[in-house]
Each structure stands twice: as structure tokens, then as C-alpha cells.
Design a protein around this nucleic acid. Structure first.
Lengths: 219, 219
DNA sequence: GGTGGCGGTATTGTATACATCTTTTCGGGG
DNA sequence: CCCCGAAAAGATGTATACAATACCGCCACC
């Protein structure tokens, strides 16, 4: 098996999701024994999961004192958008510099088509924006994967793993925000395919900056 | 106690240093039992240390198969410079936007003075560049700390935690490279103090790009 | 009344035993 | 000779016991 999963990883995923959903109050202690009883595992996988979440930046750790849910400030959220703009922008530039194979271009166009269809049918506002969220995540994750840099991937993940940002803020979007956002997706792919690193980076930065601005207006 | 240290942390530090020094061949397995016997601790702190190092990106992990020393490509190294340029550049912009207190400005100027003195006395090339390395690290770490963003700090740390990059490449520097590099330090601080985010970011990006170019010429 | 030391309790850190999975080895069959 | 499969060996994953540290309340003392 290539990607077997251990209990530590399952526990980490469960807790990560619950933290991002806001099930734990910021500053609350994450105690090993209590969590172990609640999730019906021993302290060992709990410990490993907590350590992972702390490395992700979701928990604060102090030796011999355990873990607490980290408090995110508005500033943290806004900075994360600027970090993403810089990192995903860099990813696009690298991608444009190296060029894409036909298969890779196909892959991106499939995502664009999917977004076009969602927009045309008006489905993007349904299912609690679930389909749109999936498409959007797919777009950004695929680009990161193609950029093929462990460092970039990790950083983008770090910048996405916080409340609000992780879930997307589509409930704050106006109809024209969806349209404009997806137009930018098109511009980004076009620029990459044309090997224009400058424009690819610029459009991705603009794209994420716009998303950050929408969030900023509501915080 | 505020910053007590556990065995897991000590072990992680020891192993990190040894990996960065190249004591372990890339791709080599890091087996818990062997390391436990070598470092005279049980498997528990070893496991936690290995998990930390994997999160740092120094080890690859596969469930039920353990950890291996990650192989870094030239491309990884070069990308890390571009990541640093973007991230530390962003940090400088944020710093310029918010402005520095007198005490903070003092702190930066002290580092600049230290660098000036090293250059004037010619000591920067002594002790295996140790003093210069310390000054340089001090400069970059202090700026990151002042930027006061956990995310930025973590990312910059990630981008620094690889072979070559972590240690610095000063043995490849020409005399004028040291001078020019430190001049850039001055320009960066000046721009930040003048609240000129644009220039502060530009100079930091240029500064790190130059360092990356020197490394690139030798790889 | 405030402060500082002293236990008791709770929680985390570490060691170790056991369970599970992977890898290797070895023998039989084709 | 190669291939396949089962058993054994070795490594990782998990549970649990014990050790060390931090937290809390109490009391003496200033």
C-alpha cells in the first residue's frame, strides 16, 4: 500500500477539522487524556496529532504545559492572503517559466470548463457553495502540484490552514465577484500557457488580493 | 519556567544539525531503534523528533515505513531563495507600513554598526566567516521577529532549513560581495524607517536575489 | 493582608510491552 | 532458473505504566 493511514493521522485530521470549524474556543487547552477518552484511542496518537497541529500553526505549545488552541487575529488572516498572493504567484511564475505539457494544459482547462459550467448554470451558489469551493480548491491545488516544489506546497498549505481562509468566504461574494474571480482563473492559465511569467504571477497575485479584499471588508 | 526543553526537542535539534551538516546520506533511513540506542533515549522522544523534522521538510515520511533523509535538488535550493525573497520582502513591507519605534530602530542600527565594524576591520573573512554569519543571521531574524507574524516566521524558517542555505554560502563571496550585501542591509533599514514599503520590499528582494545568484553560479 | 514555601493533585514526558504492518528469506512448484 | 507464497524477522504503530514537571490550595510567616 502506498498511502496507508495511521490513527495519529486520522486523529490529526479530525481535530484539525474541528478546530477550523471553531468547535474549540481559542485559548482552550487541548488535554491529552480528555481527547484520548473522547476519541477512544490512547494518548500516543493524540500526542502525535497535537504535535502535527502545532506545527501547522493551529495550536500553541509550551513544554510540560501542553497545547492550547491558537488565537488568530484579523491581522493573521489578512497577512495569510498576502503570503498566499506571493507564494502562489511565485508558483505561477515558475510554471510559466518551465512551460506546461499538453496533458497538463488539458487538466487546467478541464477545471476552467467546470467553473464556466457552474457559473452558466447558476449552481455556484448552491449546496452552501460546495461545488464552487471544490472547483476553486481544485484550481489552486492543481497549480501548486504542477509547480512541483515541496517547499511551495507546504507554505501554501500553511497559509490556507486557518479559520475562514480554509473554508473560503464565498458567502460574502456578490454575483459579479464569482464571475470576476473565474475570469482571473482564465487569465492565469492563459498567461502560463503563453510562457508569460510576469503576467501569470501578476494575475495570481491580483486574484488572491481581490479575495483578501473581500474578506477584509467583512472583518 | 518559561522555556523548558524536553528530550524530544534536544534530540530534534541534534538530528537537525547533523542532517544539515550532511552526516546522513540523502535517502538514508532514519530508524527509531538505531537512533534510540545511539542517543541513549527511548523510542518515544526519537519518534517525536523525527515527526518534527519531517514537518520541517528535512525527512520524508511514509506510514508504517518510517522516515528517510530527504534529497534536496539544486532546484529546491534555488526556489528557497525566491521564497525567502518574497517572504522577507513582504515582512519588510509590513514593517515599513506599520512603522518602527525608536527602540526598534536602535536595535537594527546596532546590527548595521556591527556589520560596518566587521567590514572595516576585515574580520568578516575570519573564523570561517562565523562573525559575519552571526551578524547576517541576526539581521534577518530580527526583521522577521519585528514583523511579528507567526506565519511569516515559520515560512522563512522553512525556507532556511535546508543544506547550504542554512549555513550560508559566504565562502563563495568575493570581497565586494560582502560590501554590497551590507550596503543593501543599510538600504533596507533606511527604507523601513522612512515608511517606504515599496522600496523596503524591493531592496530585500534584491538582497536575497543577489545571494541566490551567487549560490546559483556555484551549483 | 500579602507573600513565600510546601504538599497534593493533575498533566505532561519518557520508557517499555504489545500489536500491526512491511520486508526479507526460504522452499516448493512451474 | 525464475516466480510465487508463506513464515519469520524486523520495523513502525499503539497502549500503558512510571517519572518528572507544573498547577493549586493551604498555611506559616512577615
Amino acid at each position: 500500500m502506498q498511502d496507508a493511514r495511521t490513527r495519529s493521522q486520522s486523529v490529526a485530521d479530525t481535530l484539525r477539522e474541528r478546530i477550523l470549524r471553531g468547535d474549540f474556543a481559542p485559548g482552550a487547552r487541548m488535554q491529552e487524556i480528555a481527547l484520548a477518552e473522547e476519541l477512544h484511542v490512547s494518548r500516543t496518537p493524540i500526542r502525535e496529532a497535537l504535535r502535527s497541529l502545532a506545527e501547522d500553526g493551529l495550536l500553541d505549545y509550551a513544554a510540560n504545559r501542553g497545547y492550547r488552541v491558537r488565537q488568530f487575529t484579523v491581522r493573521d488572516i489578512l497577512i495569510s492572503f498576502r503570503v498566499r498572493a506571493a507564494m502562489e504567484g511565485l508558483g505561477c511564475r515558475l510554471l510559466a517559466e518551465r512551460g506546461l505539457s499538453d496533458a497538463e494544459q488539458q487538466r487546467l482547462r478541464a477545471i476552467l470548463d467546470n467553473g464556466d459550467a457552474l457559473l452558466a448554470s447558476g449552481q455556484h451558489a448552491q449546496h452552501d457553495y460546495g461545488l464552487w469551493r471544490d472547483m476553486n480548491r481544485d484550481f489552486h491545488v492543481t497549480l501548486l502540484k504542477l509547480a512541483d516544489s515541496a517547499l511551495l506546497k507546504k507554505i501554501a498549505r500553511d497559509a490556507l490552514t486557518l479559520p475562514i481562509v480554509n473554508h473560503g468566504a464565498f458567502h460574502w461574494y456578490q454575483p459579479e465577484d464569482f464571475r470576476r474571480s473565474h475570469e482571473q482563473h482564465h487569465m492565469i492559465v492563459t498567461a502560463i500557457c503563453e510562457r508569460d511569467g510576469e503576467r501569470a504571477e501578476w494575475w495570481m497575485r491580483e486574484h488572491i488580493r481581490a479575495a483578501g479584499d473581500i474578506v477584509a471588508r467583512h472583518l
